[in-house]
Each structure stands twice: as C-alpha cells, then as structure tokens.
Design a protein around this nucleic acid. Structure first.
Length: 478
RNA sequence: GGUGGGUUGGCGGAGAGGUUACGCACCGGAUUGCAAAUCCGUGAAGACCGGUUCGAUUCCGGUACCCACCUCCA
C-alpha cells in the first residue's frame, strides 16, 4: 500500500498518514459562509481536498472515505441581506429570508464547484446532503456542546453571551504557534467588558427581534462563529477523526477555537489528527481584494469563457502550501496543454491504473506540480491510455469536463470547407492563396497539421469562431 | 509589535547533501513549396553573507526583500 505523507500544521512536519481506521477515513473541510458567490480563493481548498480525496479513494477505496464539508448559514452578512429583502417589502419572515438567501447561494456554490470538477462531499463514498451539513440544522448540538463546556468549567455566561475561557485550556494557541500573552500584546480589538480575558471568544450571543435567533438556556440568540464546525464534525465524524482542512487564514482564530471547543468538550479524544492548510491565492502578484479591483468569483471566470478544467489545472500547478498566483498567462498555458492532451487521448480507453510515479508524487504531501511532470512525460512518450487514467486522478481529462475543448458540427464543417479550399489552392500551386487561408485559420485559433495523408486540425488556445466565419465570408465560401 | 510562510534559469514551478525535474519561451537540426504541428538536440538557476561538510541550491545561523495571519476573509 502506498504510504501517504502530509504536512501536519499541528506539528509543522511532514508525517506518515496513519488512519484511525483504514476502513473508515473521516475528513472535514471548512466550507463557505453562504452569503454570496464563491470567489476564486474559495476554490483552492476545495480543489486541494478534491485531489486528496481522490488519492484516498485510490489507496483505501471510495467506500472507506467520508468527506464532510459544511455550509455556514449563520452569519451577519446573510442577516443583512435578509433584512434588506424584508425592507424591500418581502412578506417572508426573517428566518425564511435567511433560508432563501442561503438556498440560492448554496445552489451557486454547487454549480461553480461542479464546473471545476470537484467531487461532492460524501459519506462512505455515497454523495448525500448529510455530508454537507448546514449550521442551522445543528443548533441543538451547538447548545448541548456549550452546556458541556460550561459544566466542565471551560465556558461561562455573561450578559446573555456564552464565552469560552481561553485560560482554562493550556494548549490554546498551540496550532497557530502563539501564546495568549503574545496575542494580547498585539491585540487591536476593543474588548467587551464582560470578558474574563480579552482573548475569550463567543460561543453564543443574543439576538434582538431584528435578527434570526433560536431559544436557548441563555435566551433567544445565535451561535458564535466557530462552534458550528465543532458540533457538526462531532455529529458526523465523531469526536476523533483523521484530517481537517481549510485555508491558512482560518488557522487563527477559527481552527484554534475549534480545537479549544472540541478538545475541552471531549477531553479524552484527539479531535482532528492531521491539519492541512493551503496558502492564499493572489491575482497577478497581488492579494485579491475588492479595493484593488482584482476581486472576482469563479463564476466571473466561467462566464468569461475560462473553462473550469483550465481553472483547475492552474490551481493544481502550484503546491498547496505555497501562495498561488492566478495570471492570464497561466490560464492560456493551461488551456494549450489541456487541448494537446485531449487531442492525444481522444477515443482512447483509459489504462487500468495510473502511473506509479504520479501516485508517488501525490502521496508525497500532494505534490501536484510533480504529478504534472509525470503527465507531461506520459504525453511525450505517447502513452495516451496511461496519461488518461493518470490525469483523471487529478480530476483532469474527465469526459464531463471536456465540452469546452470540442468543436460543434457547424464549426467542424466550416474548418473542413476552409481546408478544402486551401488544398485546392495548393494543388493549383497558388501558394499565396493557400497560405492566406492557412494563416487566417491559425489566427482564428485552429491548429492545422499537414500530414502525408492530408490536413488534420484541432482547436487551439484562443479559438474564435467569429474570426473563422469572417474568413469564410471573405473567401466566398458561405 | 507578535506569529507563520516564502525568495530556484527569460517566465511558471518541483524534488533531492554529490548524478537531466518538468512545462512554456528561446536557439540549432530533421521535416515542409514556405510554414505550422511533430521529432531530435543545445543553452540557461538557486536573494545576500557566514557556518557545518570531501562536497550545499538542498542542513544551520544572520541580513535584505516579499506575503499572510493577529480584524466572523478559503
């Protein structure tokens, strides 16, 4: 069996991955807060985990893997949108409007992640809504966890809030490598007067009539940000599970607080044994932010005609623990490579197993860049069957992802007609006309290959159907 | 200020204490009516300063620069 090695943020070392139960692997990935479209950065942890899960399927079998990813549908931004709709005259209740907003956002999220070829979360291999829990469906478990934490002396009530007492958990700060005292020195936030320690964080907070809320022992209120992941992972994966992932920006405070809550509520358990964090995404060398004007969503890219498979390729070409820079140049290069590979594997049956070197690369802390080198090597050797099955381990060259690379019948007929006109010109040794047609076809993004038996063609990067039509009109072929 | 990460050839981007990463681009050759595609081949690196070592781009220390988190952003 292939030994998987992962960099565990908890120990800051690359470690052999030893599952708690090899027949029942359990993973948790922090999913989106569903207030708006997923931006490009949201896609990175999803794709990193997607490759990890595909690797686990390969090594342990699909039915041995449970992969849970949550939707956080309790959030001030969702509330704000619901209040806006209420003010605009909606007859629905605030709770219903929150649900409505979450519902539409989740549908977008699914559509966008599907377009990137990301597998849906699943329980023992079976895709089910249960594997994508929503915070609002686990309020009772959160309340219970808060009660447990209070009973064990790790949390306290103050002015309708329930707060976690960070001083009660000696390991607080261990994941992110900071001490409570260090953090206090750099604290910039205004501290609520009812906190025992400035770093104490909210487990439950009161809601007024303008906000959605649930009845609790502390009055009508809503959960704090971190408790939902602790409650849902415990409910679906148990108090100890294998791998927990997310963006590095979640390391503190979100994951630190999850650990504090979960470990204090279940003191004899491990919570997550391996922590995986992906580095951030940048755009053309800069942080993606609304103020810089380089902020965009996955949908923006898809609508601009960048195929999901290309986005996926670019994302995976940088190792997950390094900052990844999204650039137009990379997208163009990825598109060209994918077209070439798709041409190579067209009509080919996949081999039975992926290249061992590729599995080795992925098993070594998800070295996707190294995996690409193996794919290039297979392509160069012309081993199309092996290339196909190997690329699919990265979620590439899947049949359902390839529509973008195909020409429809009208386009194919147009190209054939142009090539016939060129062939006729060449036969008549009218090379000026033949070359003009060829250059026009090439400029439209169609690659022409002359072989001993005639001309073949394939769509290349930047294919432009309109330019092709214009060329045909110019030559009087329509 | 605290914490963590990074700096590799023209560009992107990996691994390994000593032997070609890989891709794109470039250059040379084969091929072609000329090209394209394809094939073959060449060249090109390890921020800076020290240390360990027979040998470091790879380990250790320092410097510079960049980035992230510390603010309910993946």
């Amino acid at each position: 069996m292939v030994q998987i090695r992962l960099t565990n943020t908890r120990t800051r070392r690359k470690e052999d991955f030893q599952p708690i139960d090899p027949t029942n692997l359990r993973l948790y990935l922090c999913g989106p807060t569903v207030y708006d479209r997923a931006h490009l950065g949201n896609a990175r942890p999803v794709l990193v985990f997607d490759v990890l899960v595909r690797l686990l399927h390969h090594v342990y079998g699909r039915e041995a893997v449970t992969y849970v990813r949550n939707f956080t549908d309790v959030d001030d931004k969702i509330n704000a949108e619901a209040q806006r709709r209420k003010a605009a005259g909606s007859p629905l209740s605030l709770e219903a409007l929150v649900a409505e907003r979450s519902e539409e956002t989740i549908a977008w999220y699914h559509a966008d992640m599907d377009a990137l070829g990301a597998m849906r979360p699943h329980i023992r291999g079976k895709v089910t809504p249960l594997a994508e829990p929503r915070a609002t469906a686990y309020i009772a478990q959160m309340i219970q966890m808060n009660l447990d934490l209070i009973a064990r002396g790790h949390a306290y009530e103050a002015e309708g809030h329930v707060l976690f007492d960070v001083r009660s958990f000696p390991d607080y700060g261990k994941l992110s490598g900071r001490s409570v005292d260090d953090m206090m020195a750099g604290a910039r936030v205004e501290v609520a007067p009812f906190k025992r320690d400035p770093m104490d964080f909210v487990l439950w907070k009161p809601s007024d009539d303008e906000l959605p809320g649930w009845d609790s022992p502390w009055g009508r209120g809503r959960p704090g940000w971190h408790i939902e992941c602790s409650a849902m992972s415990a409910a679906l994966l148990g108090p100890s599970f294998d791998i927990h992932g997310g963006g590095i920006d979640l390391q503190f405070p979100h994951h630190e607080n999850e650990i504090a809550q979960s470990c204090c509520a279940h003191p004899t358990e491990d919570f997550a044994r391996y922590w995986l964090h992906n580095e951030m995404l940048q755009v053309e060398g800069k942080k993606m932010s609304k103020s810089l004007g380089n902020f965009f969503t996955v949908r923006d890219l898809l609508d601009r005609g960048v195929p999901g498979e290309v986005i996926r390729f670019v994302m995976l070409s940088t190792h997950y623990r390094k900052p990844m820079d999204w650039t137009e140049a990379k997208a163009a290069e990825a598109e060209a490579v994918l077209r070439r590979w798709r041409g190579l594997v067209a009509g080919i049956e996949p081999a039975t197993s992926p290249a061992p070197a590729l599995v080795e690369a992925l098993a070594d802390d998800l070295n996707t860049a190294g995996a690409f080198a193996v794919l290039h090597e297979l392509a160069a050797r012309g081993d199309a069957a092996r290339l196909l099955v190997s690329a699919r381990m990265l979620g590439l060259l899947l049949p359902e992802m390839g529509r973008w690379a195909e020409a429809d019948n009208a386009v194919a007929a147009r190209i054939e007609a142009l090539l016939e006109a060129r062939a006729a010109a060449r036969k008549a040794r009218d090379f000026a006309r033949a070359d003009a047609i060829r250059d026009g076809i090439a400029a439209a993004g169609v690659e022409v290959k002359d072989t001993a038996t005639g001309s073949e063609w394939a769509l290349a990067a930047g294919f432009d159907a309109k330019a092709l039509d214009a060329l045909a009109r110019e030559l009087g072929l329509t």
